[in-house]
Amino acid sequence: MKSNPMMILGLALFAGLLAAAPLRAEDAPANCEVPTYLLTSESPLPKVETAIVSDRRLEILVVGSRSSTITASEGSAYPGRLQAILKEALPKVAVNVSVELQVKKTAEEVAGGLVKLVEVRKPTLVIWQTGTYDAIRAIDPDDFRAGLDEGVVGLQKTGADVVLMNLQYSPRTETMISAPPYLDNMRVVAQEHSVPLFDRFAIMRHWSDAGDFDLSSTSHGPDLAKRVHDCIGRALSKFVIDAAHVKPAQQN
């Protein structure tokens, strides 16, 4: 629901800036369409395709930071939603999504341990969500890129498919955290190694611009987080199925 800016401005002047904050409905149903170009990738996921079409077993490992979970309700975070939605979309495939949280670690630090993780879990697909902590710490973008590079190459050597996921769009911290260098470098590394990039940043910004979510909300409850993660899970499952070139006929 979009509000009339002039009306809100008038109200704000009337009631004071702060009082105007909770104007948006908190319980609006999650309507989170994503434009197709944000969900398509030139880079394929051949291992995932084989896993779905022939093996009927899809093991996904999400390696991520704090933004891959919701405190006190892990099940509603996007990895859990991804598993549920993929199971629904691919009823004949045994889908399992596990999460490995690497909190407060830079891409370089995570990269070092990635291969070991994969050797233990043997996933078909690794979704590596990263960039936020590097951006917060203002890590040198070149070091970030080197870390990403090392991680992606290592993962590809183990024979797993890789999807990179970038930062969240966070309007409140836009003046404090500089995302662009990290977004750019993730795009570059994804391109270099033909790895699909799930552009979480652009997708969330699209939702914010379209008025689907009020991402500046000061609400302290987990509601908004749950709805956003549900939508990310949906978008991510579409993205993975699309990149794996699985047609509806093959799924069943």
Binding site: R66, S67, T71, Y133, I136, R172, T218
Partner: peptide, 19 residues
């Protein structure tokens, strides 16, 4: 930043608040 730190505590962005 001090204002945001005290007034904004959305669980969606608990990581970003690390700033």
């Amino acid at each position: 930043i001090s204002y945001v730190a005290t007034n904004f505590n959305n669980p969606l962005y608990s990581e970003e608040m690390g700033i």
